[in-house]
C-alpha cells in the first residue's frame, strides 16, 4: 500500500520550520491550519451557532428545531441543523522545570520551546472552537495560572504567558494537580505537557483525583531524541539539569542499557496513564506537532 501523500501544509508543522517564526500566535495558527487542512468535517451535527443545513422534518425529530420561518414561506417543515459543538474547557498544565530546557545537537528546539509550541497550538485550536482554555505553568510550584475562559482576548493572554516561560528548578506534579482540584474547574480536558521525569506512583496519585473529577487527561510526554537514544562521543560525567547531580556513565551503558531503561520508563508511563484513563502521547522534539493536536481532537471528539 503506497504511503499517503503528505499535505504540503503539514510541512509547516516541522519544529525546525516553526522555530524560525518568532510570533507564537503565528506558530499556533500555522500549526492548526496545517492540521485542519488534512481533516474532514465531522459528520455529526450538534448545537453550535454555526449553521449546517436544512433537513425535512421526519418523525422522531425534535419539533423544537423546526424552522418556522421556512414553514411560513414554503409550508414545509424543515429542521435547522448546526455543526456539532461541545462545551469542553481545556486546561493546559505546562511543566517548566529545568529538564525541559534540554536540547541535544539532534534537535533544533529545546523541549521547552517544543512544549510552548504545543501549548500555544492547543490553545489556539481550542479558542477557535470557542472552547474555554486555561494555562497553568509549574515546576516545583505553580509559577503562572490563567483560569479557563472563552473570552476573545484569552488566547493572547495565554500566548503572552507562554512567552515568559523559562525552564528552571525541579518538577513536582502534586502542586498543579492539587490546585486544579481545589479551584473546582469545570469538567473538561486537561493537557499535561512535560517530560515526566518523575516517580510513577506520585504521578498517579497526583492525576487520579483529576480523573475522578471527570477530567479527560492528556499526557504529552516531550522528549529529545538524544534522551531516547543518546549518542555520547566522549565519555564523561553527565550533570542532571534539575538537581545538579553529576553522574559518570560509561559509554557502554548509554548505548545498551539506557535505551532499554528509557523504553521501560515510557511503557510505565503509558500504563500509569491507562490506569487513570488518560491518553499518553510521546512526542519527540524533532517530530511535527500534528500528533499532539490530533490527540486533542480525538479527545474532543470523544467528549462530543
Amino acid at each position: 500500500m503506497p504511503a499517503p501523500k503528505a499535505n504540503p501544509m503539514q510541512r509547516l508543522l516541522d519544529p525546525a520550520v516553526l522555530s524560525s517564526l518568532s510570533n507564537l500566535e503565528l506558530v499556533a495558527r500555522t500549526v492548526v491550519d496545517g492540521v485542519m487542512v488534512g481533516l474532514h468535517r465531522s459528520p455529526r451535527f450538534g448545537f453550535s451557532q454555526e449553521f449546517a443545513e436544512y433537513k425535512p422534518y421526519t418523525e422522531g425529530d425534535d419539533p423544537r428545531y423546526i424552522d418556522w420561518n421556512v414553514y411560513a414561506r414554503s409550508e414545509r417543515t424543515y429542521i435547522k441543523r448546526f455543526r456539532g459543538e461541545t462545551n469542553s474547557p481545556l486546561m493546559i498544565l505546562l511543566d517548566s522545570s529545568a529538564s525541559m530546557g534540554y536540547q541535544s545537537e539532534q534537535s533544533t528546539v529545546s523541549k521547552m520551546q517544543y512544549a510552548n509550541y504545543l501549548a500555544a497550538s492547543l490553545a489556539y485550536m481550542a479558542s477557535k472552537q470557542n472552547d474555554a482554555v486555561g494555562l497553568m505553568v509549574f515546576d516545583e510550584q505553580v509559577r503562572d495560572y490563567r483560569p479557563p475562559s472563552s473570552r476573545s482576548g484569552q488566547l493572547q493572554v495565554i500566548l503572552h504567558c507562554l512567552d515568559k516561560v523559562v525552564a528552571e528548578r525541579g518538577t513536582v506534579f502534586e502542586e498543579p494537580a492539587t490546585q486544579i482540584g481545589a479551584l473546582g474547574i469545570k469538567k473538561g480536558m486537561v493537557a499535561v505537557i512535560s517530560d515526566f521525569y518523575c516517580d510513577y506512583e506520585s504521578l498517579l496519585q497526583s492525576v487520579r483525583p483529576l480523573a475522578f473529577q471527570g477530567q479527560d487527561i492528556m499526557m504529552f510526554q516531550i522528549m529529545d531524541p538524544a534522551e531516547i537514544k543518546p549518542e555520547i562521543k566522549q565519555p564523561g560525567p553527565l550533570k542532571d539539569a534539575e538537581t545538579g547531580q553529576v553522574v559518570e556513565v560509561s559509554r557502554e551503558y548509554m548505548q545498551k542499557q539506557y535505551p532499554i531503561k528509557m523504553q521501560q520508563h515510557i511503557a510505565s508511563l503509558e500504563n500509569a496513564a491507562a490506569a487513570v484513563r488518560a491518553d499518553h502521547v510521546l512526542m519527540q522534539t524533532t517530530e511535527p506537532l500534528n500528533q499532539g493536536l490530533n490527540g486533542y481532537l480525538r479527545f474532543r471528539t470523544r467528549r462530543s
Partner: peptide
C-alpha cells in the same frame, strides 16, 4: 578536563 555534559535527568542513569 572532561566537561560535564548537561543532561535532562539523571533519573535513569547509573554511575559506572
Amino acid at each position: 578536563t572532561p566537561d560535564q555534559q548537561e543532561f535532562a535527568s539523571a533519573m535513569l542513569l547509573s554511575p559506572t
